[in-house]
């Protein structure tokens, strides 16, 4: 589903060159749930951003669903992300000015869909994460765990084939964290969604199909 070949990422300033990722080769199969672990600053999030086409590698190739992505324009990249990918962030990144339902509808705004369809799909997604009774709430009226569930609903509303989760339980206590992981596991098992998750939690990582470890920008496991 995702193929990374010789990925390298270098951050350059006028005086310093920092190697964030080096020679990353990774094949992630369709329906796989993969964890990425490693110490802070080892390049986990950078790798996830590159997989999510949010950042471009300095070298190497990415193929998603057998499609090369390096030649895509801003507009094509946006459409590709919209269709194929869903994102979950550590700090939720919900839009505080919008109600829960509007937040969840967001990815659907950028594709052909009617208001009715959007509402239906968003309600469905919220039901899946157990928040159907919170549609009219604003994000600041929710707990951390609820916010992350809204973020998951937003990530799955467009029925993407891949979900990229960057420390989705990082801001939550262990009970809430387990709830979120359970939802992700269900999505993976029931819907066959491919999930790549960055985490610091060994226990969680071991519940997924495969674990990749990074150290100083290189793959060590």
């Amino acid at each position: 589903m995702i193929r990374l070949q010789n990925i390298e990422k270098v951050y350059r300033t006028s005086t310093v060159e920092t190697l964030a990722l080096s020679s990353i080769n990774l094949d992630i199969a369709k329906g796989e749930f993969l964890s990425i672990m490693g110490p802070s600053g080892c390049g986990k999030s950078t790798l996830l951003n590159i997989m999510g086409l949010l950042d471009a590698p300095s070298k190497g190739d990415i193929k998603i669903d057998n499609q090369k992505t390096d030649h895509l324009s801003d507009k094509q990249l946006a459409a590709f992300r919209n269709k194929k990918l869903g994102f979950i962030f550590q700090s939720y990144h919900l839009i505080n000015d919008l109600q829960v339902l509007d937040n969840v509808e967001l990815p659907l705004l950028y594709r052909d869909s009617t208001a009715k369809e959007r509402k239906m799909l968003a309600t469905e997604a919220l039901e899946k994460v157990g928040l159907a009774n919170r549609v009219k709430h604003f994000p600041n009226q929710l707990s951390g765990g609820q916010k992350q569930r809204v973020a998951i609903a937003r990530a799955i509303v467009g029925r993407p084939e891949i979900i990229l989760a960057d420390e989705p339980t990082g801001n939550l206590d262990s009970a809430m964290g387990s709830e979120i992981l359970d939802i992700l596991l269900q999505l993976n098992q029931k819907d066959g969604t491919t999930i790549v998750m960055v985490t610091h939690d060994e226990n969680m990582a071991h519940k997924t199909h495969r674990l990749v470890r990074l150290f100083d920008g290189s793959q060590v496991q």
Partner: peptide
């Protein structure tokens, strides 16, 4: 900017 990032991540082009 966080909203801009999210919108872009979920499929908004610069033009949109």
């Amino acid at each position: 900017s966080s909203e801009i990032g999210v919108r872009k991540a979920f499929g908004a082009s610069s033009k949109t």
